[in-house]
Design a protein around this nucleic acid. Structure first.
Length: 218
DNA sequence: GACCAGGCACATC
DNA sequence: GATGTGCATGGT
């Protein structure tokens, strides 16, 4: 498929989603730091469960880099328990905090000032932060124009025959970034809409749904 | 009771 | 490089 068609298709999908569902106001989090924590906690986990964990951290007044980092593993694990994988995630949070504090003194504005590609490499070097988590942090916490890919995104492109079903993360990401304007607002909204529609329609109503903007109607 | 959710690292081949 | 597995909760 030629580039111009992909661009057109991607725009069509976006317009349809946006017209049907409206702006999603992502990421649901009050501060960039909260977004970062949420990005790690939501790995393979329902967002509702993550919210419970974040509420626990907030109520304890621990949603700050230094305080969270100082917390003993068992206490941290107990607080984030609702988010599942709590031992793994406690370790991953600590790894991230060690990086944030060690490299940027816990200063997120300082972190945001770093070159995006360099920063992405630094994040990926943290054990427990993979591509989706790194890109979520870059886009939703730091407002960098990075497209976030997830399982839904792959399914959508596959369904529209834009990419193969088993296309890997980097390829899918490139399809978006090379065919759309590198725009933070657009990337933000697009990924959020994909998640929203994936949740609400893709599984429940199948195989054909007239509301579902993901069904290619030609 | 099965299945799923906004992944990731690690072991093994 | 590809494939399989552990990690765990709470909602449907």
């Amino acid at each position: 498929m030629r580039r111009v068609h992909i661009t057109t298709d991607l725009k069509k999908i976006y317009d349809k989603l946006h017209a049907g569902l409206g702006p999603q106001h992502w990421w649901p989090g009050e501060t960039p730091f909260e977004v970062m924590v949420g990005a790690i906690l939501t790995q393979n986990t329902n967002w509702g469960n993550v919210e419970k964990a974040i509420v626990n951290l907030k109520k304890s007044g621990l949603l700050k880099p230094e305080r969270l980092f100082k917390l003993p593993h068992n206490r941290l694990a107990r607080l984030i328990k609702p988010a599942g994988y709590y031992n793994v995630k406690a370790r991953r949070l600590k790894n991230f905090l060690r990086f944030l504090i060690g490299t940027y003194g816990g200063d997120i504005r300082k972190m945001a000032g770093r070159n995006t590609d360099v920063l992405r490499g630094e994040l990926l070097a943290v054990n427990g932060i993979g591509r989706e988590t790194a890109d979520s942090i870059l886009l939703y916490a730091l407002n960098k124009p990075v497209f976030v890919v997830d399982a839904y995104t792959k399914r959508i492109l596959a369904r529209h025959k834009i990419s193969a079903a088993d296309a890997d993360y980097d390829l899918v990401q490139q399809i978006f970034t090379r065919n759309l304007k590198k725009d933070v607002k657009l990337f933000n909204e697009y990924h959020a809409l994909i998640v929203r529609v994936g949740k609400e329609f893709c599984r429940k109503i199948k195989p054909r749904c007239r509301i579902c903007p993901l069904q290619k109607q030609r």
